[in-house]
Amino acid sequence: MASIFSSSIGRKFAMALSAFFLMVFLLQHFAINILSVFSPDSFNEVSHFMGTFWAVQFLLQPILIFGVVFHFIMGFVLEIKNNKSRAVSYAKNKGSANSTWMSRNMIWSGGFILIFIVIHFIDFWIPEINTKYIVGDMSGLHNGEFRYYEELREKFVPIWRVGLYCLGFVFLALHLLHGFNSAFQSVGANNKYTNGLKGFGKVYAIGIPVGFIFIALFHHFTH
């Protein structure tokens, strides 16, 4: 049991499990963000709940941060190991003949997502933490009203941020197009449902990022 996470298959499991966790988180994040398009009030209420409920803040949030950091570190560790496994490369290698571009470039799509997440943290998360825990304002109010919706709208005014946001989600889509089904294969789920799952995986991989992009563009153009 101890050796499981040092073995190649154990690490594969670990990558897949953290991926599942992150994919569920992503869905949850999307579900909340899309409220901002349809119902600003609900968006405010849910945001306030997520931002102040202790279990979310002190239990789920640390797990999430751990999941993100773990997935990235493990991804880079595996990439380094894999590069060492072929010290001399081929003079001619036709990767496109047997695998998708997405599957061969997870480190690149993942790397860009990492850059995006770091910027996203600095941009959204740190100011939030600052207001709540440094300034100590847990009310979620600004001029007597919930501030979340208006803050979100403000964030999407500058075009550079919208552009960066969209780019980040393009890389996320590329990453998920391989990653979604790869995670299932890693935990040993390859059976009669696999084809159906592949279809669902494509819908998820494209649908969620497109949804996030839609939200950003919506707020940019309706502000």
């Binding site: 073995s7 190649s8 496994s85 695998s99 391989h178 089904n181």
Partner: peptide
């Protein structure tokens, strides 16, 4: 699997190239 890892083969990332070739 232990022997496979010791031999220095890389980690599978499910590209599926093996199955095709």
């Amino acid at each position: 699997v232990k022997q496979m890892d010791e031999e220095g083969f890389g980690n599978c990332t499910n590209t599926g190239a093996c199955e095709v070739e």
